[in-house]
Amino acid sequence: MPGTAADIYATAGRMTEDERLAIVARFGLDESLWVQFYTYIGRAFQGDFGQSFTYFPSNVTTKILSALPWSLFLIINAMILQVIIAFVLGATSAWKAGGKFDATTQAISLALWATPMFWLAMLALYLLGNDLGWFPLAGQQTPGVTYATWFNKIGDYYYHAALPIMVLVVNQFGGYQLIMRNTMVTTLREHYITTAEAKGASDTRVKYKHAARNAMLPMVTSVGLRFSLAVAGSIFTEMIFNYNGVGRLIFQSVGMRDYPMLQGCFFILSCSVIIANLLVDILYQYLDPRIRY
């Protein structure tokens, strides 16, 4: 998508040359690229990503910060569900590795993983939202409603987020499930599993309390890395479900070639991935006593 932003804005409305030059000067586009770059980096580290071309005069940072909580709401809910589903399915399929359940879950989760998320989202929106009418078609909350209780508010948020979260979960739990299952297979061969069984522990206790509790560690580590996949997924879901998060902002900025906004979004998303990794590291210490300090 080439073209400088000023040209696009010059042709978007009918603009005189003077107006075009005014805009170029306003956004500092007349400076040399290096000057623009230095100015940008300098400001970025102060949390200032400049002004949006499209949402002028709002600045990029405020726009992103108001969208970010919605994205995080989707991503975090989806990731928690993914991990829970993967924990149970992975543990169960490894328990009888090579069995029918194992083969079926692997086949299904790989198939869902290989399906393009945006397509799943389109189908979900069309079938579950449009045809069956079970879920709202757009937005993240019912507009103009004053919520009677705090509970109603959360309920409404979840009602609107249900489809996007569902699509994220369905498409992405397979990755965790695979890690969980493969670790679980090796964990089940550990001596302490035999010890637990010898102690007379029930199958459920051996499976979850001993085996899965240990086997989940690599999966938890992967949450940090896979956070960026969830971010990618949220771009599609937010775009298709018209959910006003950072992902939708990115999608719109691509169309408008709103570079400051794009860069800002990317920067903020990278930061949230790094923070997520840090949080996972902290959480990991509580899950694995061997690396406690």
Binding site: M1, F227, L229, V231, A232, Y259, L262, F266
Partner: peptide, 19 residues
């Protein structure tokens, strides 16, 4: 590279390039 969100990175990069 592994920690950077790949798709947003790709979007930003390809927004600058001729497809």
């Amino acid at each position: 590279l592994l920690i950077m969100p790949r798709l947003p990175l790709l979007i930003v990069l390809s927004a600058y390039l001729r497809p």
